[in-house]
Design a protein around this nucleic acid. Structure first.
Lengths: 346, 346
DNA sequence: GATATCTTTGATACCGGTAACAACATCTTA
DNA sequence: TAAGATGTTGTTACCGGTATCAAAGATATC
């Protein structure tokens, strides 16, 4: 724990305690506790007396104390690779909506795509006694997995369908999504399908997408050409670069599947800048149905991924486990469907 | 016979306690506590004995207990109007970076632009005994303000420079930003400057932007025409609509300042669809320097706001107050600068 | 060498709640 | 009407740590 100012004892202003409420209402603290947490176990008269005492004093329960005493917390930890990536915000929103409604609180941190950092965060969350964990990455250190197992805290993994899940999984399959879109492009008649993706170091999603792409090529009877595969960073400029590189090294390329963040937009802009018809000269497909893609001209063919649903389902399953002890969810895998959105660019 | 761990009630699996570590190391719990939190107060030998016992047992401190006992927590509460709005993610990132580095945790929730919901969240955070609060809205219920005051928790307001700050403020001025951009457009020679903004109900940022716009018009000697002011919702489609409406009702309009989320992009697309030259027929200016604006054609003139810095500075000030008792920061207001980014669209 | 000071460790009493059980009143049911 | 069931409230012992102060040894000062 970080050092803090030692102005007197602790940092908080003195706040009313449950015993103050009890005294004011002329009852025991247990009655106050019951009136607040299990109102049905208390007579109407007591309930009113307690509640008015609470109001008069301006009492705020101390969650730290109640969690410690009851050995039950109402916080859930979420670790995303990157907080400022709009990809995750829909999922976070889905989680947040459900979690808040249940009176839980969300602790959020970002791992920066680093499993060691993730492990540290998991540890930190466990010391805070979160009652559940949501992890977006499917790549973890063995120590992290061990700590989670030892803690017994239920976990949902979110970003991919891992081979060896820790516990529960709610996701779409990156392999499947990339496979499906590549097949789609193949069926549309494209023969030289380039593939751009985010760096796959510490990014299992990225790796699975590449595998899906290759599996589809094989299925389509197309040769795999390494020059058609490019890994890059996020961003519009990266998308532009990809176009330049791939067209330069393989002029006969006729389609570009951008399986990563806004790469497709950057690629499309670059094509327009060069005066290339899309999809006439080169078709473009993207990986995530951000609003922008629909409004561009040409509108961009893409995959609609169940981002919000993933968050929502994750939260529901986690809360079932936590609140109702729904053990049948343990280890269950929910493979949510995606959808090819056919538009003008391919 | 001492109570067995496995019989303890609640949801958590058995976890080692400090007394288990103490027993193993043959010391008192206080020595363990010191070895972990104030290593300098313990002899080298003890420190080693304790640390190895910690490792052997796989002990994880219980933050709930230590916070309760020391009356000091390491969580900070953040309330944003909307979690899935990319506008805030940079600020959240700035906060997160600093906060994590100091060993604190971030609790995040969204108010949905609703002060009552915000109050509930503030209450919830206070029951969790957060040691600091970051609020993005500058509009609060009186009860919320009272609760915060009573709790004594330091607060930073982030989204705007409010007239009556609760405590600390780190922000740019929405009034000033809108004023500056409007003046900029005026100096460029535009005479009929339309203004599109997000709904101002429960959105003080939006209201202040409008005021800044009007103040600039006055300064420029231009008449205020209500038909040139449009409030709308977020989104590309809204931006498109704005163009349609404003041009229809005031054909002589020659500039459109979109002081809201991606409205400018939608507006630009709509102009292109209609074959209108930008800025020839109508100039367009935006409010936030999202990456996209630079890559569009024409590139879009906009304001660069110190989103990340706001988060970073907020966190630093908050942590100073919490850890070092930096009372001189109480009530201080940091007005961070913004910048007009002149591009092709205006 | 004796006292004062510092360092290191431990015993104890909490922090603010809740679980478990006890005590008592009231209500059922045979 | 007695015995058990049910409902309501209180008592006590914790949850897992830390603040506080006391105690004992080590070092310093005169």
């Amino acid at each position: 724990m970080p050092k803090q100012s030692s102005t007197r004892k602790g940092q908080f202003a003195t706040s009313a305690r449950m015993r103050d409420v009890a005294k004011r209402a002329g009852v025991s603290t247990m009655t106050v506790s019951r009136a607040l947490n299990e109102p049905s176990k208390v007579s109407e008269e007591m309930r009113e007396r307690v509640l008015s005492a609470v109001k008069e004093i301006g009492y705020l329960p101390n969650h730290l104390a109640s969690s410690l005493s009851s050995n039950r917390s109402t916080t859930i930890g979420l670790i995303v690779p990157s907080i400022d990536n709009s990809i995750y915000t829909q999922t976070v929103k889905g989680l947040s909506d459900v979690i808040r409604q249940s009176g839980f609180q969300l602790m959020i941190a970002e791992s920066g795509y680093d499993p060691n950092e993730e492990e540290e965060l998991i540890t930190a969350f466990l010391t805070h006694r979160v009652s559940g964990l949501v992890l977006h990455s499917a790549e973890h250190t063995p120590q992290a997995v061990a700590k989670i197992a030892k803690s017994g805290v239920p976990v949902v993994e979110n970003g991919n369908i891992p081979e060896k899940p820790i516990d529960m999984v709610v996701s779409y399959s990156n392999w499947d999504a990339a496979y499906t879109m590549t097949m789609h492009l193949g069926r549309l008649g494209y023969k030289h399908i380039a593939f751009a993706s985010l760096y796959s170091v510490h990014n299992d999603r990225s790796r699975d997408r590449l595998k899906g792409y290759r599996a589809a090529l094989e299925q389509l009877g197309l040769d795999y050409d390494p020059r058609l595969v490019i890994e890059t960073s996020r961003g519009l400029s990266s998308g532009a670069e990809v176009v330049a590189r791939v067209v330069h090294s393989v002029p006969e390329v006729d389609a570009l599947f951008c399986a990563g963040d806004v790469l497709a937009v950057g690629a499309l802009f670059e094509c327009q800048k060069r005066g290339w018809a899309v999809p006439g000269r080169i078709a473009i497909a993207s990986f995530d149905d951000v609003e922008l893609l629909r409004h561009l001209s040409p509108s961009v063919t893409t995959l609609r991924l169940p981002r919000y649903d993933i968050g929502e389902r994750s939260a529901r399953m986690l809360l079932s486990r936590i609140m109702d002890g729904a053990e049948h969810f343990r280890g269950s895998i929910v493979d949510l469907k995606f959808e090819v959105i056919q538009r003008e660019s391919a």
